[in-house]
Design a binder for these strands. Structure first.
Lengths: 169, 169
DNA sequence: CCCAAATAGTTTGATTCCCGACTAATGGGC
DNA sequence: GCCCATTAGTCGGGAATCAAACTATTTGGG
């Protein structure tokens, strides 16, 4: 929203615009869960903001990246890799095919399955998004330091594998 | 191609649960963004699974927790605290009021705003959810260790405040 | 060869979220 | 007291996601 005050600046209503009201987070403020969620959210938004100009959600990039790194992959394998339901993938791939970034071909040995490959246009877009993604990760490095970054990934991996297998019981 | 004359594996249900097909993640496999997202997702699901029996998403818990810790808080302040749009909060609070967990009252000094407080029933549910949340965090401690946990939160906070800029509104 | 179970992918309905438009109330400047 | 910009919250539309039902194909037992 553009500042209309530039036009009709009668007075200076400079009330502190957003006084966060000092909320007490208590125990919640020390949880891993809350910070994981907030960090993931700002990282997601920062990525999308940075990839501006290209169709840029992180998952969209991951789809293109993984097809590029694993040409001929099927939709089911791709869905498992990014941990999405195959039904979530359908409209995304519909769109990527419509844009001529991805080709879906029936697999000869199993005509129920599709194999996925990038077109040259798809590779070009992926390369652009990859540049954005690299810059994004570099900014995270700048924020946390390279050594903390490695430590962070190691810790996150432990959480992922530890809680994921917790499906037992 | 393959004739059915191949030897028949009788009782073995070759039911390999979707053998993940060994996907190559390449550069993506070393990014903070991917692991943040995956960790947040499994943590979210583990929390919901653990809160079984109660209506349990992490955000729902956070809403109850913050109202309890800050009675009389307004919807806008609550939305800012959990970084959700106020319009996302409306249906959640509608539901919590319908269940008689939360009371919405017009603020006398500003009759546009609502103040939020927990009912005794709301406090009871919140206490149950808090026990689940404490157990959840303890499991994370077990996975990463208490010292790494503090380090993890510090690092996540740096990411949150560092990337948050540019999120004007 | 045939049929039933399993599998790959699509479609549909429900849920959750955001954004932008809207309503109601507030308060500063005249 | 009256404007009218600003603020609190709600409403409606659109996007992303999952689960369940569905279609097409494969596979194995008889």
């Amino acid at each position: 929203m553009a500042r209309r005050s530039a036009q009709r600046l009668k007075t200076v209503p400079q009330h502190e615009p957003t006084q966060p009201k000092e909320i007490d987070f208590g125990w919640l403020g020390g949880t891993v869960g809350l910070h994981l969620r907030l960090a993931q959210e700002v990282a997601f938004q920062a990525f999308a903001r940075r990839a501006n100009g290209v169709d840029g959600s992180p998952w969209r990039f991951a789809v293109l990246f993984l097809i590029d790194a694993n040409p001929g992959l099927t939709q089911g394998d791709l869905a498992a890799a990014i941990r999405r339901n195959t039904s979530s993938l359908t409209p995304v791939l519909d769109d990527l095919c419509r844009l001529d970034y991805v080709v879906r071909e029936r697999l000869a040995s199993d005509r129920r399955a599709y194999t996925l490959t990038l077109t040259p246009a798809g590779k070009a877009v992926m390369a652009k998004l990859r540049a954005s993604a690299v810059a994004h990760e570099r900014e995270i490095d700048r924020l946390v330091g390279r050594t903390n970054r490695a430590e962070l990934i190691r810790t996150l991996k432990r959480i992922i594998t530890g809680l994921e297998e917790g499906r037992d019981r």
